[in-house]
């Protein structure tokens, strides 16, 4: 079989065919799997929200253990008692609020529209949790997460995740030893919604000081850590007006 692979016409035909074949395969795959992937992402969101308010299967000091996917839908409707959408002064209830795409809402806000802010109210053994979704920038790509607050604005739990932070460094924001430090910290400094900073020099590696608005940073992940700080402070500022109405002073 002698094909002259050096000819220009052959090169063009080969390139065209390759693009068509690869494009078709990937498009077919993406569209046939997209329902399943979307469903996985939906369940993951429920797991993340429940994780932030302490509904998880963590044991001791081990790794992050979510509620299993086959139970998460039931647990979600059991513990999340209200889902709100805050649009300026208007607050509406919506059972699908957790599906709101924060990225799209941020773009909408940039274009001068009112952004829809989802907020989840959880109830665990009589105590209420106000869970705020967050989104920010890490070193390479987006980071996001959820923070659960009580009515005194003290963090009860957080969950962080990322698209592409460096494994072993920035990617460790989703490790328990980092996330657990946030519990007990207040997002208030005085009466100001300051958030919580990921600080290198806070001189408190065991995180015993809970009123400094700081947690200990990750070595080698400065930019991701700064991204987490910025994400928390920007997100709580968005919800400031609502949080003021529920805060116990």
């Amino acid at each position: 079989m002698a094909i002259n692979t050096e000819k220009n016409s052959y090169t063009v035909i080969f390139a065209t065919l390759m693009v068509i074949v690869v494009g078709t395969v990937l498009a077919f795959l993406a569209s046939s799997l997209s329902d399943k992937i979307k469903e996985n992402e939906r369940l993951e969101k429920q797991q993340n929200i429940l994780y932030a308010m302490g509904i998880n299967q963590n044991k001791g000091e081990g790794s992050v253990k979510f509620i299993p996917t086959d139970q998460v839908a039931g647990e979600f409707s059991k513990y999340i008692k209200e889902q709100l959408i805050i649009e300026g002064d208007k607050i509406t209830k919506d059972d699908q609020a957790y599906l709101i795409d924060l990225k799209k809402q941020a773009t909408a806000a940039k274009n001068g529209e009112t952004r829809k802010l989802p907020l989840f109210i959880g109830d665990k053994e009589g105590s209420e949790f106000y869970i705020i979704p967050m989104r920010g920038k890490g070193l390479w790509d987006a980071i996001w997460g959820f923070v659960a607050l009580d009515d005194k604005m003290v963090v009860q739990g957080v969950y962080f995740d990322h698209a592409a932070e460096t494994p072993g460094l920035g990617a460790n924001i989703k490790q328990r030893y980092f996330m657990d430090d946030f519990s007990g910290e207040s997002i208030l400094a005085g009466t100001e919604y300051a958030g919580i900073a990921v600080a290198k020099g806070n001189n408190d590696p065991l995180n015993k000081i809970k009123d400094d608005n700081e947690v200990d940073a990750l070595a080698g992940a400065t930019i991701t850590g700064n991204g987490v700080s910025a994400m928390i402070s920007e997100s709580v500022k968005l919800y400031k007006d609502y949080l003021e109405t529920i805060r116990v002073k």
Binding site: T5, E6, Y10, F14, M18, V22, V25, L26, L29, L33
Partner: peptide, 24 residues
């Protein structure tokens, strides 16, 4: 069958396609 003039691009497409299929 790979044309030598565009072989690097072809290699890149092959590896990227494989990885994306596995990822999806």
């Amino acid at each position: 069958i790979i044309p030598s003039k565009i072989r690097i691009i072809v290699q890149l497409i092959v590896v990227a396609t494989l990885v994306i299929i596995v990822d999806q």
